[in-house]
């Protein structure tokens, strides 16, 4: 077993005045992911090392962290991709609760603000609605979002203006705006035409780099902006 130098940004609100870095030398296996290394450090050295995790294979969105300076899911980054030195910090731009755990309430509040649900008259009868595969494909990319906040917390516009609704909320609005079954696109576009809506995007593509689901977020934001433009 070889080892890595793991540097964790730690903060305990009951003890610490400010976040600080703590180093651990952690044994690793060849196929280990950063989540495995964090878990091992917690088991071997200090049970109070605190982070969220659940599915451990990139579908639940619990363990988005800033790893070697980039927002990534800890369960999707293999240690061998990072070399001998790994730094792990909480997602930037969100309030830290403890160690690597950030307060997600405001993030989910923005998600809820864009009407992230199908709005449609109940169809007649009891059957399914029909939708062509082409209509389905139109919004496929943005259905993949797992709300991990890696994108929003990587966005310089969000860092500068925390009221910005952010890429994740726009992605989830996009998912319904371009769904042929939905009838509330205008309401969502109205919400996103606000000064803290889509116009704050500066197309830096940090969100695209950060997304663990490979969603082309900037393209989705531009499609929403364009829909707002053509509506006026």
């Amino acid at each position: 077993m070889s080892s890595v130098e793991l540097k964790i940004q730690r903060f305990d609100p009951e003890r610490d005045a400010a976040p600080h870095w703590v180093n651990y030398t952690v044994p690793v296996e060849p196929m280990d992911r950063v989540l495995d290394v964090l878990t091992r450090a917690k088991e071997l050295f200090d049970g109070s090392i605190t982070f969220r995790r659940s599915c451990a294979h990139g579908v639940c969105g619990s363990d988005a962290l800033m790893i070697n300076g980039r927002n990534r899911l800890a369960c999707k980054v293999r240690v061998e991709q990072l070399g001998k030195s790994i730094s792990v910090a909480p997602l930037p731009g969100l309030p830290v609760i403890k160690d690597l755990v950030v307060d997600m309430d405001a993030f989910f509040g923005k998600y809820r603000s864009v009407l992230p649900f199908l709005v449609a008259e109940e169809p007649a009868g009891e059957g399914e609605r029909h939708q062509t595969q082409e209509q389905r494909d139109r919004y496929d990319d943005t259905t993949k979002c797992i709300l991990c906040a890696a994108c929003t917390s990587s966005c310089p516009s969000f860092w500068a203006q925390p009221d910005y609704v952010g890429p994740a909320a726009i992605v989830n609005a996009h998912r319904f705006i371009f769904d042929s079954r939905d009838e509330a696109a205008d309401d969502r576009l109205e919400i996103l035409a606000d000064e803290d809506g889509v116009w704050r995007c500066r197309t830096t593509f940090n969100c695209v780099d950060a997304c663990p689901r490979g969603i082309n977020i900037t393209k989705a934001i531009l499609e929403v902006s364009s829909a707002i433009g053509s509506r006026r």
Binding site: E128, H130, R136, D179
Partner: peptide, 21 residues
């Protein structure tokens, strides 16, 4: 009926060539 209700709630099922689930 449960699957059909999910579709009516907006679940994006893959579709057949004639637009059904």
């Amino acid at each position: 009926p449960a699957v059909i209700e999910l579709e009516r709630m907006g679940l994006p099922f893959n579709r057949t060539p004639d637009g059904k689930i």
